[in-house]
Each structure stands twice: as C-alpha cells, then as structure tokens.
C-alpha cells in the first residue's frame, strides 16, 4: 500500500444531544479515490467538517500528511494540501470566475498580502494557472462572468476548480453532483476521474448516487446514524448484507 495521507481515529461530534458522528475512523491513502455514502442525516457532512476543520471533533483525532491536525484551523489544513467543496456551493458570487480562481492561486503563491497590482510576469503566471484550471473543468468560455450569473452546474464546477487552486494533495468533495442534471453529472464524474488520473490527486467524496459511487471509488465507507456500518471495495460493499439492508436496498432501487 502507498502512503497514508489522511487518517481519522475514533472521531465524534455532538450537537446538543444529537450524536452526529460517533467513533468514526477512516484511512485515505495517497493516490486513491474514496467515497462516503449513507442516508440523509447519517453524519457525512459533519464528518467532512471535522476532517477539514470547519468543526473540531469532541472525540478522536485527525492527522493529515503525518501531522496531527485535530485542532488546526481550516486555513492551515488548506496550506498543508487539503482542498474542499461544500454541499451547497460556496463561492464568491459577485466576483468573476477568473477572480474566484485568482484568490486561491494568489493565496497559494503567497501574493495575497501584496498591496500593489501584480507585475507583468506575475500576471502572466496567474493567467496561465487560471487557464489551466478553467480548461480542466471546461469553463473557459465564461471566465469573465460573475459567478452569480452562471448556472448551478457551472458554479459547482467552478467550486471544484477553486478547491484545486491552492494546489492540494487531497480534495474533499461534499455531494459534488447534488442537484445537477444528467449531462452535468457526467461532466463532474469525468472531472473527478481526471483529478485522479491526470493530476494524481487523492479524492474523498460524499455521494448519494450509487452507480456513480460504485464506478468511481476504490474504497467506500458507509455511514449510518453517525457510525461506520462498513468499509471496503465496491465489490465488498455491494455484497455486504448489512449494508444492503440498511442502505443500498432503498437507494439502488431509486438510482440504478
């Protein structure tokens, strides 16, 4: 097996009396595609939030690239190489696609504290990096339109590109296909494939669509009521009786 990139051990998070996540452990190896599935309210987003520093867990630990990040602020994790998207798109709505990406690129290049306009050479580098990201998600044609004017699917693609703008090793995608039409879904699927195949990134994503999960992921973790129900390869997961009963039974009928 290759290097361990991200490891969660016994993570728990409570909201008042609700155990949103309880004793969840997960290992993500460098260069793999991993999925988290589970019914609504299973705690997938909350778990993502503890991994990325949106919340700190009440129990357990999170380590990333070998360092303990359980209580590290989100921006430090990003600087260590973690990118993420949100279940409901989180972008800069009044900035153009170009500017949305430039903010992240400038952050990664330590230019955000520059008080003068970019030099010609810096500007050329920025343009080049923006073009690469735009080409990757196929948004070149709308580069100078504000995000608020774009369709939902394009906003999601832009958010994926933003998560790449900081040059991460690992990207966390929370339901990247939620609310997308069929054609848009297949575009996002191929983008995720390319993240892995072309850019060599490690991917962890949450998704409801079982067909997508089974075809994309190498490793699947099933959450149910805040706990891990099963972990394994697509073949193991689709053969697991408990999972079939608790989750896949309903969903497969819905989606496949």
């Amino acid at each position: 097996m290759s290097d361990l990139l991200l490891e969660a051990k016994g993570v728990g998070k409570r909201f008042g009396g609700v155990h949103a996540v309880e004793d969840v452990s997960l290992r993500v190896y460098a260069g793999s595609i991993n999925a988290i599935i589970g019914p609504n309210g299973a705690g997938k987003t909350t778990f993502f939030n503890t991994l990325s520093g949106f919340y700190f867990p009440d129990a357990g630990s999170v380590s990333f690239t070998g360092a303990d990040v359980t209580r590290a602020p989100s921006y430090d994790r990003v600087r260590m190489g973690m990118g993420r998207t949100f279940q409901t798109s989180s972008v800069f709505p009044e900035l153009t696609v170009y500017e949305n990406l430039a903010v992240g690129i400038e952050s990664a290049d330590n230019l955000s504290f520059r008080f003068r306009t970019l030099s010609r050479a810096q500007r050329a580098t920025l343009d080049q990096k923006v073009d690469r990201l735009l080409g990757f998600v196929g948004l070149g044609a709308v580069a100078h339109r504000p995000l608020a004017e774009l369709a939902h699917g394009s906003q999601r693609l832009c958010e994926i590109a933003m998560s790449l703008s900081t040059e991460p090793k690992l990207v966390l995608l929370d339901e990247p296909m939620a609310g997308l039409a069929q054609a848009e879904t297949s575009r996002v699927v191929s983008v995720i494939r390319n993240l892995h195949a072309e850019l060599g990134l490690t991917v962890l994503f949450v998704e409801h669509n079982m067909r997508v999960v089974l075809s994309l992921a190498q490793q699947i973790t099933v959450l149910d009521r805040g706990r891990v129900l099963a972990t394994g390869t697509p073949t193991e997961i689709s053969a697991n009786a408990e999972v079939r009963e608790a989750y896949i039974g309903k969903e497969v009928i819905e989606h496949v």
């Binding site: 921006y75 990003v78 800069f92 709505p93 430039a102 903010v103 952050s107 008080f115 970019l118 703008s165």
Partner: peptide
C-alpha cells in the same frame, strides 16, 4: 484605487463575499 486592484484588495472583497470560502483557500482572514 491601486489598493483595491491589488491582490490584497481582491482578497478583502473575497472575504466580504464569503469568509468561510476564503478560509478554505488557505487565508487567515
């Protein structure tokens, strides 16, 4: 005018529009 056109100015506008996203671009807002 120069300041708001600089990367710093752009970053401030980004923070105004969506601080959580700015933090997830590695910025200590």
């Amino acid at each position: 005018w120069l300041l708001v056109r600089s990367p710093f100015g752009r970053t401030l506008v980004a923070i105004k529009q969506n601080e959580v996203r700015a933090r997830y671009l590695g910025l200590n807002t």
